[in-house]
Amino acid sequence: MNDFGLMTVFSFAPGGWGAAMAAASAMTIAVATAGFIAGAIIGTFGAWAKISGGRVVRSVADGYTTVLRGIPDLLVIYLFYFGSSAVLTPIGRVFGANGFLSLPAFFAGCLAIAIVSGAYHTEVFRGAYQVVARGEIDAAYATGMSRALAFRRIIAPLTLRFALPGLANIWQLVLKESSLISVTGLVEILRESQIGAGSTKQPFTFFLAAAILYLLISSASGWALQIAERHFTRGLGRG
């Protein structure tokens, strides 16, 4: 007998899990967004290294993307969560802290997502840059733009335009990957569902709710990204 209706379990009234699940959804979106942006920054440098770096820089970037695509994301999360304490505790000792120091789960999670998604960002940016017509870049230099100005006004906007579909894919990946951070105890959607499942003895209800929340976030953001894509490619003829 299931005597709690879904509406009661997830109500926003005291005793209901609605507010907690909403806060957890906000946390998921926050950690995914922060990780995604940091990953994009890593990806920009990675793409730059692959496109115009010397042999050493290029092979470092190649090594980074190859290794990260072959290693489970969960392992990377463990590395940052547990590994940070190995680095921070001795530093803390120098400054007089005796306890066990580690990165906050949010920060460790963002870093892990950034490092993992940075590998995908690198490839997406590199691919997009290669689609940018050579002539546009040559024309920018020919009109006397400096390298920085050409990058800001011509290369970056055009690359972003071509990178948008790939970035949308990465965003969906990152969103799903953020659920792995629940293993470090960060209270995002999945962790909150585990807590709820434990205290109400209704695991199916809660994990189903988690699935629906992820579905909603990914559909809504997918829809928004599609609109953005249409907006930014409006100048391009569709063959």
């Binding site: 969906q172 969103l175 799903k176 990957e177 953020s178 659920s179 792995l180 629940s182 999945l190 569902s193 585990q194 499942a197 003895k201 209704q202 695991p203 199916f204 209800t205 994990f207 189903l208 988690a210 699935a211 992820y214 579905l215 990914s218 559909s219 997918g222």
Partner: peptide, 22 residues
């Protein structure tokens, strides 16, 4: 659509912990 837009870990939990609810 359902399996691609939800995290694998949620699917694992639904099957491992969730099904026992019934």
């Amino acid at each position: 659509f359902l399996f691609r837009s939800t995290p694998l870990l949620v699917q694992i939990f639904l099957i491992y912990y969730g099904l026992g609810q019934f």
